[in-house]
Amino acid sequence: MIAPIRRMAGVAVVAGALLTTACSQTAQAPQPRTEFNIGWSIYAGWMPWPYAQQAGIVKKWGDKYGLKINIVQVNDYVESVNQFTAGKLDGVTVANMDALTIPAAGGKDTSAIIVGDYSNGNDGIVMKGAGDLASIKGQPVNLVELSVSHYLLARALDTVHLAPNDVKTVNTADADIVGAFASPDVKVAVAWNPQLTAIKGQPGAKQVFSSADIPGEILDLLCVDTATLKTNPKLGKALAGIWYETTALMTRQDEQGRQARAAMAKLAGATPEAFDRQLSTTHLYADPKAAVTATASPALVTTMTRVRDFSFSKGLFKGAATADAVGIAFPGGKTLGDPARVTLRFDESFMKMAAEGKL
């Protein structure tokens, strides 16, 4: 099974505490460079990166632009995002909520240059018994608090006209949630794969809501330090080239595609069958045109408004008086929040180059 190492914005307080000071700090402008480190952690939608390194695709595109790109595994997801925030990594694979609440809320100017996929069933709410979602009212809910599971719960409650205080959340580590749900005392759990699959397989379990009910809201991104990107635009071109060559290969329905996916599964510690099941609930943006369209869509602004309002309500913007304290920029000049404090940018330019064959 794929290791349970994904998405825990609850640790964002480490970065969020910097909000009131980081934006006022004046850092030296990055210098042009030829070597870069991109961090990743195990998750189905991010396995193209280590595979590309193994298959020589990273070297191919690095050589094209005179760069050396190191694809660095970090065993703990949150640690990878914290390392990026601290400047130890030039880029990182990260979910949209965590990109906002950790580096961006910490004052680090961050650019999302590849919208890689969205969870299309990889995250879900499971209940014991035959009740529907509305019957969740008044029940304890086990989940990783302040993570995308918490966000998914909030979105689910809204669909049945319930408020967050209509349930009581029980903070449960992702490593413990499968065992917790097996306890007779635990009736509801929110989890992501592979734990979600394990929970759904327990006797009496019924999934009552999933990320497939809010398509496009739990996004997985490749983010790069904005200043580094501006000084070294070839890095963005190389990374886009790597991503789209690799995803084109892995989505092929032939022997080459099968072998690529099997190699990714091995890198993730999964069987090919388990990996393919996780890909089936991951909407992969293998086509750069589709990724550009999604990034330029008004729906992304709506999604990020929900994400930032939820994050602010949970205190993840430490030191901020309003949700507008962290600015988010979108293609076409649209800005959410304070335009003078933009620290998260959805930059479609490199995806667009890929779509137009200009890499």
Results as ranks from 00 to 15, higher is better:
149 S>H: 11
324 D>V: 01
197 T>F: 08
199 I>R: 09
31 Q>S: 14
92 V>I: 15
37 N>D: 11
301 V>G: 04
327 G>W: 00
166 D>L: 08
288 P>M: 04
283 H>D: 13
151 Y>G: 12
172 T>M: 06
127 M>Y: 03
314 K>I: 10
296 A>V: 04
279 L>Y: 03
312 F>G: 05
166 D>W: 03
142 N>A: 15
323 A>P: 08
101 T>C: 12
321 A>I: 02
27 A>T: 11
232 N>S: 07
312 F>T: 07
98 D>I: 06
244 Y>M: 02
31 Q>F: 01
26 T>K: 14
164 P>S: 07
149 S>I: 00
154 A>R: 11
238 A>W: 01
210 S>F: 00
285 Y>C: 08
233 P>K: 09
269 G>A: 11
81 V>F: 03
31 Q>Y: 01
122 N>H: 10
84 F>R: 12
214 I>W: 03
333 G>M: 03
69 I>M: 00
214 I>S: 11
118 Y>P: 12
197 T>Q: 15
62 G>Y: 01
168 K>Y: 03
134 A>M: 02
356 E>M: 10
256 Q>F: 00
327 G>R: 01
107 G>A: 04
62 G>C: 01
331 P>R: 07
212 A>I: 02
106 G>I: 04
247 T>P: 02
127 M>D: 08
136 I>M: 08
256 Q>R: 10
292 V>I: 12
286 A>P: 08
144 V>E: 14
65 Y>H: 10
183 S>V: 06
50 P>A: 02
120 N>H: 13
41 S>C: 10
262 A>V: 06
185 D>I: 03
105 A>V: 13
125 I>A: 12
201 G>S: 15
60 K>V: 00
283 H>W: 10
351 M>I: 09
337 G>H: 09
14 V>K: 13
164 P>Q: 08
173 A>I: 03
306 R>Y: 00
209 F>Y: 15
57 I>Q: 02
15 A>G: 15
56 G>Y: 00
97 M>E: 11
339 P>M: 13
238 A>Y: 00
290 A>T: 06
291 A>G: 13
90 D>I: 09
201 G>H: 09
97 M>H: 14
46 W>Q: 13
242 I>R: 00
227 A>Q: 13
134 A>V: 06
51 Y>R: 06
137 K>D: 09
165 N>F: 04
10 G>V: 10
291 A>F: 07
315 G>I: 02
168 K>R: 15
47 M>T: 10
277 R>M: 04
119 S>V: 14
326 V>M: 12
306 R>M: 09
185 D>R: 12
4 P>R: 12
221 L>Y: 05
